[in-house]
Design a protein around this nucleic acid. Sequence first.
DNA 1: CGCTGCGTTGAGCGCAGTCAACGAGCGTGG
DNA 2: CCACGCTCGTTGACTGCGCTCAACGCAGCG
Lengths: 235, 235
Amino acid sequence: MQVMENFNHPCGKCAFYGESVWQPVADGAVSVLTRSFVRKDLEVGQVLFDQGSTNRGVFCVSRGLIALRTHHADGSSTLMRLAYPGEIIGLRAFLRDGAHQTEARALLGSRVCTVARRDANHIVQGNPAVLTRLALRCVEEVDTNHERIIGAATTSNKQRLTGLLLRLMENHGERIGGQLRMQLPLSRRDLADLLGVQPETLSRLVGRLKKEGFFSFAGREVGIPAQSLSAGVRS
Amino acid sequence: MQVMENFNHPCGKCAFYGESVWQPVADGAVSVLTRSFVRKDLEVGQVLFDQGSTNRGVFCVSRGLIALRTHHADGSSTLMRLAYPGEIIGLRAFLRDGAHQTEARALLGSRVCTVARRDANHIVQGNPAVLTRLALRCVEEVDTNHERIIGAATTSNKQRLTGLLLRLMENHGERIGGQLRMQLPLSRRDLADLLGVQPETLSRLVGRLKKEGFFSFAGREVGIPAQSLSAGVRS
DNA sequence: CGCTGCGTTGAGCGCAGTCAACGAGCGTGG
DNA sequence: CCACGCTCGTTGACTGCGCTCAACGCAGCG
C-alpha cells in the first residue's frame, strides 16, 4: 500500500498528495516548501489572479472549483478551463515567468494552495522530479485543448452540451430518489462560453434537450435518470 | 554578440542553435547527444511517426514543414498543427513516455533531427536546463491551442482563413513583381481541416475571398499585393 | 421605485452542412 | 492508345442551425 500521508510535508494531508507536483520534495527542501506554502480560501466569485497580472507562484486547487477565463479586447470573454481539486493553475505564467493569460475566479467556495514564486523556483531548480511533474501537467493541458478543438470540429453543439453536462454531473451530481441532480456551478453565459456559442443559442440548446426528455432543467438545477452515469459515460 | 556556432555541438551549425532545447548540453554530455543524434530527410508525404505509435525520441524540425494530424474513429481527420524549422514535435509522447496522439507527415521536403528516446532521457535527467526548455516548448503549444480556440469562438471562418493565408504567406511567399506569391503547402482539405470546416465550405470561402479582390487564387498559387505583409500584419 | 444582470423567446437572415453531380488530372492496366 | 478508376476541387440545391437584434420577465438591490 502506498504511503498516503506525510506529516512533515505541507501537502501530506491532501487527498491528492500522491499526484502532487510537490510530492518529490524531501529532506531539507521540505522546510523551504513549508515556509512559503500558503492556503487561501476563496469566496464564490472571488478572483485569485487577474489576466495580465504577473505570476506570483504555483497555485494548486485544493477544494472547490476555479474558472480560467480570458477576456478579449471587445469586452467578450471565453471560459478556457475549469480547474478541479488536485489541478495546477497559472502554470504557464509560472514556467515562462510572465503575465497570466487568463483570469482565475472561484465558481464555488474554494481553497487554493500557493507556493510563492521565488521559493518555487528555488525548489524546482534543486529537484528535477518536480519540474518533470510540472511538465506533465502542461502536457495534460495540451491534451485537454486538443480534445476541445477536435470536439468543436467533429461534434454538434447539442452533443457537446450533453457531454459537458454529463461531466459536470459526475463532479457535482447527487442521487436524490431515482434522479441524479446537481446545482450547476456555471451561469448560462459561462456554459455558452465553454461551448463557444452565444447565450441565446445555449438557451435554445437547453430547450431542445429538455424537450427530448433525458435532462430536466429548473434554473441551475439539472437532473437525469440515476443509472445514466454508471453506464460507461466517458469523462 | 551571441555565439551562434559551436562546432562540437550537433546543433552547432543549425540556424536555431540559440533556441535549441539541446543548447544547454555541454561537456561530456555532448558526446552522448552526438552519439544518438540522427538527421533524417523526408520526402513530401512521408510519415515520420504514426498516430498510436510509441515515441522514439525528441524530434526537431530542421528544414521543411511537418503536419501533425489526428485521425478519428470515423475516418475523418483534423490537422492540429504545422511545425516549421526550429520547432519540436512529438514532445508530449516523449514527456509522458507514451503513444503519439498525432501522425507526423512531411508537407514539403524536410529534414528532422532526432535524439533517441533512451539518450534523450539520460541527458534530460542530467541537465535540468534542457527540461526547462522542453517545458517552455510545451507552454508555447498551449498558447497556440488557446489562440485557436479563441479564434474559433470569436472570429468568422472568412476572417480565420484570411489570417491563415497571411501567416502562410509570411513563411512561403516570394515577391514577384508587384505581388507576393506562394505555392500553398496544403491541400484544400487540409486548409479546411485547419479551420474546422468542410471542404465545400472552404471552397466557397476561397471563392468569396477571390471575389473581394485582395487575394488571387489559381490552384495552389496564391497572390496578394506586395506591400500587404509589411503593413503590420500579426502572425 | 428604477436600475442592472440574467435568462428566455421571437423574427429574420446568412452561412455552413449535406447530398449530389461534374470536370480536371493522373496512374494503371487492358 | 484508350478505358477505367481514383483523388481533388468546384458548384448547385436544399435545409437547418446559429447569429443578431429586439423585447420581455424576473430577481436582487440601491
